[in-house]
Structure formats: C-alpha cells, structure tokens
C-alpha cells in the first residue's frame, strides 16, 4: 500500500530539549494509525509537527511524497491535513455554525459545501440542535463533536486527532469511538493520539508506542494488544507469573 503520510526520522526540539527524537511513521490511505504512550512521550508534539505548528529540527514529513515540513500551518491545511487539537479548542465566542464555517474557510461555497454541512449535521445531530449556540457553552462531548465536524468541513485527506476521549464520560467515549469507526468505514485516513490505549488499539489497524520521544514498539494494533509489555504498561493487565 502506498503511504499517504510519512514521517521520516523526525525530531522536534523545544529550545534545546528534544521532545521527539528521530521517529519514523507511515500512514497508509484509509488506515487508522494510533500513537499511544504516557504523558510527555511526544505524541502531541508529533501531531503538531505534522500540521506545521512546530518545526521539526531534523527529518522529513511527506504527504503523498511531497515534503511539507517547514510549511506554515495554513499552507498544510490547504494541502489536506486537518487537526482536531487536544482540548478540542473550538472558538468559544462563535456559534456552532460559525465554527463549522471556519473549518470550511478555504473552500468555495456551492452545492458540495452545502452537502457537507448537511453531512456533519446528520453525523452529529446534537450540533444541528445547537447550531446557533455559542461553542463555549457546549458540553465537553459536544465540543469534541464540533471539533471533529470542523475538521471534516475542510474535506481533509488526513485527520489528526489528539486525545478525542480526554475528559469525556464512558458513554461519550463510546460515542466518539463509534464516530471514528464510521469515519474509517468511509475510507478516511486518521492519525489518532490517545492515552486511552485500550480504546486506541481497538480502533486502529497500526499502532506505535512512544516513550520519551522515541518509538518503543510498533506493529499491527491487534498484535500490540497481545504484547505483554503493552498489556502491563498501557492496558493495566497483569499476567499471573
């Protein structure tokens, strides 16, 4: 399978401190690839580097073979990478509708765009109900849906999702999982960062385990689920020995 998104030996430094140290990741078209790992392992930094919010200090990031690192975030957005950021970060003093409009900022108005609003509203009926409400007044789960809807409005080739389940109730987590699974069935490409490793490994086809800025383990998600170390460290399963 040809890779849609590739990270080739990418490092990111904050001043002198390395947050990401030479990681190589491949994301195939239509795949869900997950990065799991503890807090501070460099998962969020990796996503921020892909969408241009951080500049890699070394290595190369390619989208369909085209080098994108060093480009401004607005340019990378134009090329088709949408980022659902950690903490959702909807525009709090704009309505639900306006938030979606911002997601579609680069697109031309027309039938296709109108259909996409309809698509987001069918996918997230809650957002339709709250179309005119200020985004800052939504619940955490609704804000997560809005952040996802905003990303979908840009008609992305790759969606980066940073901790979509963070701070949500178990019911809302299941709802988010259902939404991600459906996006996968539609053939969308997703890079999923999660602390909830159980959820992430259930959704993804391929997984990378990050530890202090490096890839510690990688492989098909189904295999990593059975891996002893992953079970001990990230899934909280203790095997009798």
């Amino acid at each position: 399978m040809a890779l849609l998104l590739e990270l080739d030996n990418v490092s990111v430094h904050y001043q002198k401190i390395a947050a990401v140290r030479g990681i190589t990741i491949g994301v195939g078209e239509g795949e869900i690839v997950t990065l799991i790992g503890a807090n501070g392992a460099g998962k969020t930094t990796t996503l921020r580097a892909i969408s241009g919010l951080e500049r890699p200090s070394a290595g190369e990031i390619r989208l369909r073979g085209q080098r994108i690192n060093g480009m401004a975030p607005e340019r990378i957005a134009e090329l088709g990478i949408a980022h659902v950021p950690e903490g959702r970060r909807v525009f709090p003093y704009m309505t639900v509708r306006e938030n979606l409009e911002m997601g579609a900022f680069l697109r031309k108005s027309g039938t296709e765009l109108r259909n996409d609003y309809e698509d987001v509203f069918t996918r997230f009926p809650r957002l339709k109900e709250r179309e005119k409400q200020l985004a800052g007044t939504l619940s955490g789960g609704e804000q997560q849906m809005l952040a996802m809807g905003r990303a979908l409005m840009s008609k992305p080739k790759v969606i980066l999702m940073d901790e979509p389940s963070l701070g949500l109730s178990p019911i809302m987590c299941r709802e988010i999982a259902r939404i991600i699974r459906r996006l996968h069935e539609e053939g969308r490409t997703i890079v999923l960062v999660e602390q909830n490793a159980r959820l992430a490994l259930a959704l993804a086809q391929k997984a990378y385990v990050m530890e202090t800025g490096r890839i510690a383990l990688e492989g098909p998600a189904a295999e990593l689920r059975e891996n002893d170390e992953v079970q001990r460290t990230y899934l909280g399963i203790t095997t009798a020995s």
Partner: peptide, 8 residues
C-alpha cells in the same frame, strides 16, 4: 493557532 489550522 487554531485559526491558522483552518487555513486562515
């Protein structure tokens, strides 16, 4: 930052 991610 998030505005930039929308292409603004």
């Amino acid at each position: 930052e998030i505005a930039a991610l929308q292409g603004i």
